[in-house]
Design a protein around this nucleic acid. Structure first.
Length: 150
DNA sequence: GCCAACGTTGGC
DNA sequence: GCCAACGTTGGC
């Protein structure tokens, strides 16, 4: 089993939205590295830190689970969608998604500030300067360490 | 709202 | 294939 971190802007889709909907297709990823993690790395059962970005207190707010293998993101074919990609075809879809399901909400937000402040976590891609990846792997040791911070 | 850090695009 | 211009992400 592998561990991941996925970012979402709470204004667009928050951990509470996932809790209410139970499961959600993670559409709109338009970055090749992030796509590759979903397509090649993720398997059903993998665990995911749900991260709130672009908000007052960015940080990890909950846990989700990968619910499906990757499949083509339907929004890339929809001309009305914000995520429409005219260069993508159904024969050779460019963008993939996985569905994730709600596991739990953390009792508190483990903030980016805290994660950055802890020398034990300085190897995490999340805390590296300028990192903009919205989907990234988490080391098993870091996963356990962060859970213990809750 | 600003802007640094990236990723992508397209002219050449 | 280089790289300038542009667009986006996301912390602050």
């Amino acid at each position: 089993m592998n561990y991941w971190l996925m970012k979402s802007e709470p204004d667009a889709f928050s951990i509470d939205d996932l809790k209410r909907k139970k499961q959600e297709a993670w559409d709109g990823v338009r970055n090749y590295q992030a796509r590759n993690f979903m397509r090649d790395g993720m398997r059903p059962g993998d665990r995911v830190f749900f991260y709130h970005s672009n908000c007052a207190v960015p940080g990890i707010v909950g846990i989700a689970e990968v619910a499906t293998d990757a499949y083509p993101d339907p929004s890339q074919f929809d001309p009305k969608s914000h995520y429409f990609d005219p260069a993508s075809t159904r024969d050779k879809p460019r963008w993939m998604l996985v569905e994730v399901k709600f596991v739990k909400k953390l009792k508190r937000t483990i903030s980016l500030y805290e994660l950055k402040s802890d020398p034990a976590l300085e190897g995490m891609p999340l805390v590296r300067k300028g990192n903009r990846l919205s989907v990234m792997p988490v080391e098993a040791a870091d996963w356990k360490y962060i859970l213990a911070m809750e």
